[in-house]
Simulated scan of single mutants.
Amino acid sequence: MGLTTFFKSLFGSTKESVTEPANNTETTLEHATETAETYIEKAETFAEEAIDKVIEVSEPIIEKVKETASEYAEKATEAINDVIESIKEATAETTDETKKLVYETVVDTSEPAIEEADKE
Rank of each mutant, 00 (worst) to 15 (best):
M1A: 03
M1K: 08
M1E: 04
G2H: 02
G2C: 03
G2F: 01
L3K: 06
F6K: 09
F7I: 13
K8T: 13
K8H: 08
K8Y: 09
S9K: 07
L10V: 08
F11H: 01
G12Q: 01
S13K: 01
E16T: 08
S17T: 10
S17E: 09
S17N: 09
V18Q: 09
E20Q: 12
P21V: 00
N23G: 04
N24C: 11
T25P: 00
E26D: 04
T28K: 07
T28H: 02
L29C: 01
L29I: 14
L29D: 02
E30Y: 00
H31M: 08
H31T: 10
A32D: 05
E34L: 11
E34R: 14
T35S: 11
T35V: 15
A36D: 01
A36F: 12
E37D: 07
E37P: 00
E37G: 02
T38G: 04
K42D: 04
K42V: 03
A43F: 12
E44S: 08
T45K: 14
T45L: 15
F46G: 11
F46M: 12
F46A: 15
A47C: 09
E48I: 12
E48N: 07
E49D: 11
A50L: 10
A50D: 02
I51Y: 06
I51P: 00
D52K: 15
K53C: 01
K53T: 09
V54P: 03
V54L: 10
V54E: 04
I55A: 05
V57T: 05
I61Q: 07
I62G: 00
E63L: 13
V65E: 04
E67S: 02
A69C: 07
A69D: 11
A69M: 13
S70M: 14
E71Q: 14
E71M: 14
E71L: 14
E71K: 15
Y72A: 13
E74D: 11
K75R: 09
K75I: 05
E78D: 14
A79R: 01
I80L: 15
N81P: 01
D82V: 09
V83E: 06
I84K: 02
E85K: 12
S86H: 11
S86W: 10
S86A: 15
I87G: 02
I87Y: 05
I87S: 03
I87P: 00
K88L: 13
E89C: 04
A90N: 11
T91A: 09
T91P: 01
E93L: 12
E93W: 06
T94M: 06
T94L: 11
T95Q: 05
D96R: 08
D96I: 04
E97D: 12
E97L: 15
E97Q: 04
K99S: 05
K99A: 12
K99G: 00
L101W: 06
V102R: 10
V106C: 05
V107F: 09
V107G: 02
T109D: 03
T109A: 12
S110W: 08
P112F: 10
P112E: 10
P112K: 15
P112H: 06
A113M: 10
A113W: 12
A113G: 14
I114E: 11
E115Y: 07
D118V: 15
K119V: 15
K119P: 02
K119S: 10
K119Y: 11
K119N: 03
E120Q: 08
